[in-house]
Design a protein around this nucleic acid. Structure first.
Lengths: 152, 152
DNA sequence: TTTGAAATTACAACTGT
DNA sequence: ACAGTTGTAATTTCAAA
């Protein structure tokens, strides 16, 4: 069960850490950083992708530059089981993450909007999801940091 | 003030959306997807990087495969101003994100550990940060989705 | 599984429009 | 600001250990 098929050794972890830092670097550079030839580094990274350890190569953007300067976390209380409400939350583009949480029957969502007015509008739309009985929004004043999952 | 220097037009947004989906694709492919030549696409992406709109190219990993299968959000209450406690939180490797939030003097952190025992240990270490007076941990049972910031 | 080399392909800079 | 060209550099495949 789970995705954890196969073993991720220390070299794999070092490769992943390097790729998290900069996925544009050449395999020769990458290999040198972990003590491997370019070809060997290429092979291991390919396998990490095949096995799903590396899910994708992507870019990190500045949310403010894209008009998503307001960040908030919203607790969504519900009167029913929300286990298969994925699509309902995914349909709201401003929602970046959605998690089912322990405790009360709730979903925790991470929301990014341009303004607080738009945040309010997202809350309104959350109430249209079946089973949703309440929301508690927490607005972020300053982000200390957001970083990749530690690989080592 | 802010990072939002210059304009991000619709073509830039389309480029970013494509790169978020797959940053390994060639500039020729990327250009075709948005109706640009390879060189023009390359030019615009370079400028987006220079301006800091694109912060870095990185890889998304499966947390479980790296032994970070337990996800929790922790509200950290404090008796003092936490405005310059960045380093204290950054020093805890299991903390993936840390944000100052409105309302009470608090920090919201996103934590990933292998086990709930390790989560407990992180909570213990949080209490060693000066000014921290309490924590409320919320464990995630299931993640619906985690996706990039919407570019369009 | 790694290395090393060869063929393919993409990158990155320049020029012209 | 975009397209086309070109030299340079990287990727990717393959044979061999």
């Amino acid at each position: 069960m789970g995705t954890g098929n196969g073993i991720v050794d220390d070299v794999d972890r070092a490769l992943i850490a390097e790729l998290q830092r900069d996925a544009t670097q050449a395999y020769a550079t990458l290999g040198k950083a972990v003590g491997l030839s370019a070809g060997a580094a290429h092979d291991r990274v390919r396998k990490l992708r095949e096995r799903g350890v590396i899910r994708r190569t992507t870019v990190d953007v500045d949310p403010t530059a894209l008009g998503r300067g307001v960040l908030a976390f919203v607790m969504v209380d519900s009167s029913a089981w929300m286990g298969d409400a994925t699509e309902s939350f995914a349909a709201v583009p401003e929602i970046q993450e959605a998690h089912i949480i322990a405790g009360t029957a709730s979903v925790l969502v991470k929301v990014r909007t341009a303004t607080t007015d738009q945040l309010q509008d997202v809350l309104r739309r959350l109430y249209t999801i079946e089973g949703v009985s309440g929301t508690q929004a927490t607005v972020v004043l300053e982000t200390f940091f957001e970083r990749p999952v530690r690989a080592d």
